[in-house]
Amino acid sequence: MLGSIKGLKVTLSTMMRKPVTAQYPIANKRLDIKKRFMGFPALLWDDSNSEPYCTGCMVCVRECPTQCMTATMADNKKFSEGKSTRKKIIDSFGINLSRCIVCGICVDVCNFDAIEMSHEHELSKFQRNANRANLKSLLAMGKTFQSKIKWEPIQIKNIGNPDLRERLQAAAKAQSEKINANEGKMDGKPEGSSL
């Protein structure tokens, strides 16, 4: 009998507590999404050049474990006009979001800061093919994500502010020269690039 009474005490004290659950479909009553949350991948927009960061190099397409992506590359018209530093630019991009397993490998392998796991995660649609995202919808997802978390490029060469970019580039150059000088003394060879 004693064990059951002890158990009842626990349930009674829980009855008095605030609920820990949240109502899902009601927007302001959901649990908030964490900053690192991985939703579906989205393409990011370079505001300083008004073009996507993506050059269509296909590395994410090749590394995707489920082969849910397609991409094609085109010559960048802005490059010939001298308005951009990107020789090539993304022409079309497709992700089958129902196939995507949200692993984040595409973000890790990207060399251009072009793809990021957005906070978009809802899959219910009315049409069967509505989960196939194209370049336009991926960029729209990316824009929402960028403004939501105030996204800044990770790579120095992509930083929009030219003063800041040059300052950081100079600092990075000095750093790498220092390391190279040290390694020359120790006769060590760099072991490839780190992840």
Binding site: K34, R36, M38, C103
Partner: peptide, 27 residues
């Protein structure tokens, strides 16, 4: 799981522990 979400970005399918360490440092 919500602690995992803060660190790894996912509640269940993390893909966080990588060959040679972990994906990124804790927030």
């Amino acid at each position: 799981q919500s602690l995992f979400e803060q660190v790894t970005g996912a509640r269940m399918m993390h893909n966080y522990i990588r060959i040679g360490g972990v994906k990124e440092d804790t927030p």
